[in-house]
Design a protein around this nucleic acid. Sequence first.
DNA 1: GAGAATTAGTATTTGTTCTGAACTATATGG
DNA 2: CCATATAGTTCAGAACAAATACTAATTCTC
Lengths: 400, 400
Amino acid sequence: MTSQATPAPGRVGDVRRRNLALVLNRLGPEGVASRAEIAAATGLTKASVSSLVADLLETGLVEELGVTRGGERGRPGVGLALSPRRGALGAEVNVDYLAVGVLDLRGALRVHETVEASNHGRAPEDVLADLRSLAARVGEAAAADGVELLGGGLAVPGIVDTASGTLVTAPNLAWAGVPLAGALQDLAPGAPFSAELSNEADSAALAELWYGRGRALGSYLYLSGEVGVGGGLVIGSQLFTGAGGHAGEVGHVVVDPGGRRCSCGGRGCVETVAGQEAVLAAAGITGAGSTTTGRLDALTASLAAGDARAVGAVERAGEALAVAVVAAARLVDLSAVVLGGHFGILRGVLGPALEAALEDLAPGRITTVAFSDLGASAALTGAAGAALRRALAAPHALLG
Amino acid sequence: MTSQATPAPGRVGDVRRRNLALVLNRLGPEGVASRAEIAAATGLTKASVSSLVADLLETGLVEELGVTRGGERGRPGVGLALSPRRGALGAEVNVDYLAVGVLDLRGALRVHETVEASNHGRAPEDVLADLRSLAARVGEAAAADGVELLGGGLAVPGIVDTASGTLVTAPNLAWAGVPLAGALQDLAPGAPFSAELSNEADSAALAELWYGRGRALGSYLYLSGEVGVGGGLVIGSQLFTGAGGHAGEVGHVVVDPGGRRCSCGGRGCVETVAGQEAVLAAAGITGAGSTTTGRLDALTASLAAGDARAVGAVERAGEALAVAVVAAARLVDLSAVVLGGHFGILRGVLGPALEAALEDLAPGRITTVAFSDLGASAALTGAAGAALRRALAAPHALLG
DNA sequence: GAGAATTAGTATTTGTTCTGAACTATATGG
DNA sequence: CCATATAGTTCAGAACAAATACTAATTCTC
């Protein structure tokens, strides 16, 4: 829910909490700054910044780097930066694999391990047991590398209830109503911030914002091509979750009111044209005795060979995506799109088709069409990054 | 822009500013409360509430009502309520009329005056001169009625830049790049809060939220049928302005990728099917020698007579709107729509067509389709209401 | 190379604001 | 008339940032 929650009364201590986070966020993007620079940038006095930084050093989130040479006159400042000795664990349960990684506060993915496994229809408890042991192994590797975990995050391909840690429904895993609170607790045991559950497309969209193509954009629609078509809306450098908490569901925007029935019960949805199954079927690639990965490889081979049927199928997918992108552009006033997931491998044909359709449907409206370069670690990076930001937003929780 | 602006440092005084607004908002919806009730509801101590209320009484925004009888034991509380002696002026410049009204803090429209005039293509300075004298007359009437103005707002049918008070473009008025800062200053001269410029559909959407059908909803898409099709997104009881500040532009969402070229340069936009001109043309109602109002009357007459061509035109408009509404439902996770403006007079045919199309395209997704009952004063009510809320959010500005 | 200039960071006092506890004020009920 | 209950006020105490005056460390200039 986006609505303003409980009307918490303002207390005197809130001021310090806010200023701690303010100073910390100054350190975030730039990397290094001195107390004096922070004072100038935030409007706080040097005295206040000194006091706040002392607390932040105590939390372990920040460390001093020693004197920074400016070549100018006067006493040199002491460099301050986010500590690479603190991090968060990000995990992803997907249809074809499990993945866990540890991201430190400087943005480096310090450990990263993937286990290939077909999880569709598998019992959740079995998958979660595998995830638990993988997370333990990665967590130990991170500890050996000197990274202490602040929290964690788990991204899943389905609709989630973050508050309760429940996976409401994940058609591609054939899971529904799976309580994951226990699995979340085991991701980063003993960490000061609790792990949260998130949707995979949302996490990937955030990974783009913090570590990928979105850094330069600030506001964009992220499109994730997996089995379905997922989406995440980033508005003003923040994930926009909408009225009910599940915004950005691009897969079921209607692009052809007279079109085919969709599995959602609707008609003419994006997924009926640009979903993986729809594209493969339209390209004439049958599923007989082949894995999803194998069929996608066949599709890229057909595209490379210039097969007209395959090219046409991907072009139609691009046109369908364009209709949905224009809807987003009009409704939430966006001008950029970032494409990730399997859309990346279709880039050569999909990109031009999408751009051409956008020019036809709404000339000049969309000014940026970018493809992700984060690859398969996007979702876990986003989940871990979100955990780090929860810590950066509440540093006071780490103080005695 | 939705992005976080300047990183203002937290000061001790911020706490009081926030708590003043917190207490004031407790008074808002309910109407009456005692200091003790406010303390219990907000979590502030009785001592703090007493001190805050003393300041609020000084601002004139709040007044004591005398002892409230509870019939229970103990000392009775003193009722507190927003003062009906403070209000804001709302104004609207539209194609066919000028309108100005004064809304008080209790939500009553105390004065309201409309001047019919065809403003299309008229010189802005002439229209604004008329507006100025109308606002002066209404302002004096309000003063005579004991209402002191806190601020004002002006709603216009076009794209606005609120920060600079500029009307960027208003095709239906044939205006572009009109600086309105001067006109805004003259709306409520001497008022402590400066008047702001807003888009008409956005203001109408807010009027629904605060005084209309939106009170029970909290999140919805408002659709305004004027010459064009405008929209306003309300998410979590707040107007959502999107990445660039102009969200909710429903009129140019693509509903028919193979459809007609639109005046915007795009193709198959909502307005090419559900815009006033498109509907009238499809209904076979020619424009020869008749005003817009006259042609709309002819359309309603045809509908009442069951004319197949007119009914079909409105039904197709409903189907086009449904595609856009589903896009909004998916992208920002909404489940309610409120229709206003000229859509109200088409209600009998448009409502069922829209609902049927919604059931076909996305069964169960939209649970509420409501029509506005605020009539022609919606936009000015929203503009005035926004001015009142600016005052309620910053009561400290009224203290010495 | 000594002192002036300049910038970084710290210590101390002051004013604002909330909290908590004790207190006064005003009602109901027996 | 007194016990009880609720409303509201007063006052000391703690937390906090601002303002001011200070110390620390470096470069520039003569």
